[in-house]
């Protein structure tokens, strides 16, 4: 298959998935037990007002027509206006998403940087105490509700020990001190050369990111362990040992080199679930990101904002799939020559 055909096929599947996503969000908008008209006019409005607003937002039209209108608007980047903020939903999301992204990126980094080595050690020490310990630690991370971990973390590291800063993204005194460039506060502080803001931002970031990172670590370590066990049984491992390589090289270069092929998908999906998982973490930590925004929108029946957020998370998932498709050839020469 030629490279052009490969790209075309990928793009086709992206478009198809995106259409599916819009149908799902549209469908959610119809079945959700929230009356968008009521949310606008309020409970005391007259029947006439209710009917007028209903017609204004097009809810009296046939469903396919409504969907078509919805799709056209979405494709123009118009997700409607938020009832709470009175701003376009797209603008709101662009404001809050970088905060979530910053959190998720650091969490993913923690999850990969620790989870992969732990999984490798667990697999090579299979059945011995390091394996049991690592599996216990990841089982704990896997089973504990994130809000509980967040609350206990705040209690211990913020309230008792004072090692980290409390909820929020930054202390009030440091707000709006650095110009927004990337939206990632730590990066913006570095770009501006403002050391105090950077340190304060990191102190706020480190606990929620560690807790989210612990969750992804638990999953990544489990998957790495199982992929590695599969690889270590392969004949090429025996051959690598037979030619006199150090066991460390056999494990970390040969076996792990092959396990990466499978790990890419897992890591991409972990990143996606970090964005979802942020809803609870951000609520516990009052983190002004997409999760908190969506929670507030949901509790206030702000349908446009909820659907916009759903769409954004879904779109990020599609992008992640695309990225992992593009990353495969980097670690797997078999995918390279198929291209």
């Amino acid at each position: 298959m030629s490279a052009v055909r490969r790209v075309l096929r990928t793009l086709f599947s992206v478009v198809l998935t995106f259409l599916g996503l819009t149908m799902v969000t549209f469908f959610i908008g119809r079945v959700i037990p929230i009356d968008p008209v009521l949310a606008i006019v309020g409970p005391k409005a007259s029947v006439e007002t209710y009917a007028r607003v209903r017609a204004e937002i097009g809810l009296d039209l046939p469903l396919p027509v409504q969907y078509w209108r919805y799709l056209t608007r979405v494709l123009h980047g118009d997700f409607g206006t938020s009832v709470i903020t009175s701003q376009p939903v797209l603008q709101d999301m662009l404001n809050v998403f970088p905060a979530t992204l910053e959190l998720a990126l650091l969490a993913l980094f923690i999850g990969v940087a620790l989870g992969v080595p732990l999984g490798v050690v667990s697999a090579t020490q299979r059945g011995r105490w390091p394996d049991h310990l690592i599996r216990l630690v990841s089982l704990f991370g896997y089973s504990m509700p994130v809000f509980w971990l967040g609350l206990v973390g705040l209690l211990l590291f913020y309230a008792k020990l004072g090692w980290v800063a409390g909820p929020g993204r930054i202390d009030v005194g440091y707000e709006d001190l650095v110009p927004t460039v990337t939206g990632l506060l730590t990066v913006d502080a570095l770009l501006d050369g403002n050391r105090d803001v950077f340190i304060n931002a990191v102190q706020h970031l480190v606990l929620p990111a560690s807790i989210l990172g612990y969750l992804s670590l638990a999953y990544i370590a489990r998957m790495t362990r199982s992929f590695m066990l599969g690889q270590l049984r392969q004949e090429y491992i025996l051959a690598a040992l037979a030619k006199g390589l150090r066991p460390a090289r056999v494990v970390w270069v040969h076996a792990l080199g092959n396990a990466w092929v499978q790990l890419i998908t897992v890591i991409a999906l972990t990143f996606g679930s970090l964005l979802e998982g942020a809803v609870l973490t951000e609520t516990v930590f009052s983190w002004p990101g997409l999760g908190l925004y969506m929670k507030n929108s949901l509790f206030n029946a702000d349908l446009n904002a909820v659907l916009g957020g759903t769409m954004l998370v879904g779109f990020v998932y599609i992008l992640l799939n695309l990225v992992s498709d593009l990353l495969y050839p980097l670690v797997d020469p078999r995918a390279r020559s198929r291209a």
Partner: peptide, 15 residues
């Protein structure tokens, strides 16, 4: 040294 049966499995596919 040792030569194994099937090069399809005995060579590391990503190297």
């Amino acid at each position: 040294a040792m030569v194994l049966q099937d090069p399809k499995f005995a060579l590391n596919p990503v190297m």
